[in-house]
């Protein structure tokens, strides 16, 4: 099958890309001044050069750079991301523990942004001078201009501190008892503000793009043909215009996926969401190199998987992509 062959090729390219990312990350972390020995010495309240050298020898930091790189790549190839200096646990274990929380946040925010963005985009395209259209434009500019940590903190003050609708932070309330549904509801309640904060920025982008793209397709010759066929308005708009208008939105969503993940770092920190973002923040401050590299590796993996998915969806929506025309 053609689709399978191309998917396979894409996966091969993705693996090569991932290898490049691993090497680049390692080089960049190595270039940054300071290492874990400094942090450990600091937490001990200072240490002399001899103890520092001892710590470096313990962690293999005294080896030449190229040897360290070689050892790291060898380990990654065996799915071993090393062990955290700071938590004293295997990095993979640490990350896999945090990953579901981040994925839950990122995927919910991205889906919500896409769905609401497309719906408001379509409605405002049908009445480009209507109330909703202007509202979308204003909210879009606001949402895109406001940094996520600022929006997040304002929402916290308004909805958690003033009117107590939502919890201040975290993902679960330890006092909640009950079955699966009670816990799901608890997590959902904790998710509302972070998801809203994270999706606002992207919602604005998708909505504006979808509006512009819909306005173009609604004025196209094939939409006129659809009307001349006597099709109902719902079919003209959703079947004939929207499917064509979605193409640029899907492309953008794929490109923005990495931005959503980096936005998640800030949002997680603001709402103390127990995901990769808060972990990244902690280990960067602690100069925990193996964990930082591990998080970067997993982020790259998620972004690459997201792009692969975008490609496949794009091919489903637009037959012209299938033959490269």
């Amino acid at each position: 099958m053609d689709v399978l062959r191309i998917t396979f090729l894409r996966i091969v390219y993705s693996a090569l890309l991932l290898a490049a990312v691993v090497v680049l990350n390692f080089v960049m972390i190595h270039l940054a001044p300071g290492d874990v020995a400094d942090t450990i010495a600091q937490s001990m309240g200072g240490a002399d050069a001899e103890i520092l050298a001892q710590i470096r020898a313990d962690y293999g930091l005294d080896q030449p750079f190229i040897v360290q790189l070689g050892q790291y790549i060898w380990k990654v190839l065996h799915f071993d991301l090393g062990s955290s200096y700071y938590y004293n646990r295997p990095v993979t274990e640490l990350i896999l523990e945090r990953l579901p929380a981040t994925l839950l946040l990122v995927i919910t925010a991205q889906t919500l942004a896409l769905v609401i963005g497309v719906v408001t985009g379509v409605f405002s395209a049908r009445r480009p001078n209507g109330f909703l259209s202007h509202l979308v434009t204003i909210v879009a500019f606001f949402g895109h201009a406001a940094p996520v940590f600022w929006t997040g903190i304002l929402l916290l003050i308004a909805f958690s501190l003033q009117i107590h609708w939502f919890p201040v932070g975290g993902m679960r309330d330890v006092t909640v008892t009950g079955g699966f549904w009670a816990h799901s509801f608890d997590v959902a309640r904790h998710m509302v503000l972070p998801v809203f904060t994270l999706s606002t920025t992207f919602l604005a982008l998708y909505s504006r793009l979808c509006r512009a793209s819909m306005m173009e397709t609604l004025g196209s010759d094939y939409v006129r043909t659809a009307k001349a066929k006597g099709l109902p308005m719902r079919s003209v708009v959703y079947k004939h215009a929207l499917k064509n208008a979605l193409s640029p939105v899907i492309t953008l969503a794929g490109l923005q996926f990495s931005a959503v993940i980096s936005g998640a770092v800030l949002v997680e920190t603001v709402f103390s969401w127990p995901g990769l973002g808060t972990l990244a923040f902690q280990v960067i401050v602690a100069r925990d190199t193996p964990t930082i590299l591990g998080i970067l590796f997993f982020s790259a993996l998620i972004v690459i998987a997201g792009n692969l998915l975008t490609d496949l969806v794009q091919r489903l929506v637009d037959p012209r992509v299938r033959t490269g025309q």
């Binding site: 006129r224 043909t225 659809a226 001349a228 064509n244």
Partner: peptide
């Protein structure tokens, strides 16, 4: 009018290159 369009009165347009929807067979 919708009932008449495409049913009792059919129309063909000038631009065959763009008058068909590119994403449907």
């Amino acid at each position: 009018l919708r009932h008449i369009r495409g049913n009792k009165i059919g129309m063909i347009f000038q631009e065959p290159m763009t008058s068909l929807n590119p994403v449907y067979s």
